[in-house]
Design a binder for these strands. Sequence first.
DNA 1: GAGCGCTGATGACATCTGTCATGCGAGCTG
DNA 2: CAGCTCGCATGACAGATGTCATCAGCGCTC
Lengths: 203, 203
Amino acid sequence: MIRLLLADDEELLRGALCSLLDLEDDLRVVAQAATTTDAVRLAGQHRPDVAVLDLEMPPTDGLHAAAQILARTDGTPPRVIIVTRHARPAVLRRALAAGVSGFVPKSTPAARLAQIVRDVAVGHRYVDPEIAASALTENECPLSDRELEVLGAARAGAPVSDIAATVHLAPGTVRNYLSSAMAKLGVATRHAAAHRAWEEGWI
Amino acid sequence: MIRLLLADDEELLRGALCSLLDLEDDLRVVAQAATTTDAVRLAGQHRPDVAVLDLEMPPTDGLHAAAQILARTDGTPPRVIIVTRHARPAVLRRALAAGVSGFVPKSTPAARLAQIVRDVAVGHRYVDPEIAASALTENECPLSDRELEVLGAARAGAPVSDIAATVHLAPGTVRNYLSSAMAKLGVATRHAAAHRAWEEGWI
DNA sequence: GAGCGCTGATGACATCTGTCATGCGAGCTG
DNA sequence: CAGCTCGCATGACAGATGTCATCAGCGCTC
């Protein structure tokens, strides 16, 4: 019997997956969470074999939760499967770096999920083949850490002075980073750069 | 027996909902679609009693599909239920204006969906109570049509000249609309305004 | 027809952005 | 140590953006 933790902020999906997976004789959902904090807490309490975490979850995100769950020192931590609608190569890379065992886009057929859970439970890894292929062929993110940080702060449309304040840099420096990021991405405004970086999953 | 059309671009959710609803004795999913075009086509072919449409679907969106499905002239069109993660009062208003019978955020418990489908099938309407309350109390979108149009074109971070080209207006005019929109929203840049308008579901 | 509100446009002006050259200090590398 | 790169910062400059006053046309109402 494989014991599952299910975490997703959308009740509709979580509930549907729960009943879907519970239909399988060898799977049992032992805990559900709608937030990352609950997910981490319940993972500690219930010690599931596999934790299925949505990537987009308040208050942080699935990767933070995964890192915390995997960092537990007493006993073996559960295997973690990340489920996401935002399935981009950059996200996959970050997920694997965090030590997750499965990476499942929401475009995966529901019927296959149970088998993925079983595979992961016995120690295998599962990565969506299409995303994996993209991750190998697509070019890496060309932006430096600082550029990403600054773009992240620019995402909501804030003026340079605000960005500089949140990133703790001089306004001129911020403009330099934005400028180089824009040059690398081939766009004309920092907002276009931020938009693009977001779509690519870089920030 | 209530015959259902299920449309959602996320296989995972669509598949899970399908098996969930098929468990009910009086419901049967007769067609599934991942795009709005398929949804419209299959609604014509299979004549379901109820169509459950995701709002966020390529290539257009669930409201367009709903409008097309409801516009059919031969026979009675199906009742339409819109499911969305982006549950804001403005979206609800647009959905009701399009003639849909149900408005269900993805935060709704999965177990309740079957009952909502039954209610809608017999002619009732269902609107998520929380969103409905917000729609009644929250202030309406303060922006004019032109302002919304211009903000929509500004969303990807394009410079004013590009926006002017896509909207077929003079650059100076575009700046006026952007300026008034920014004033109404109390923000300092058009990108912040566009971001805000997007989050509120206005564009 | 005068008045009013709305849309679309123009021009002037202050400010913000994007670009670029440059400087300074920390770390590393010969 | 000298030379080098790299992260961070500054200053100057052109062009883009935000603000504002103003105007013309159009439809509407009194």
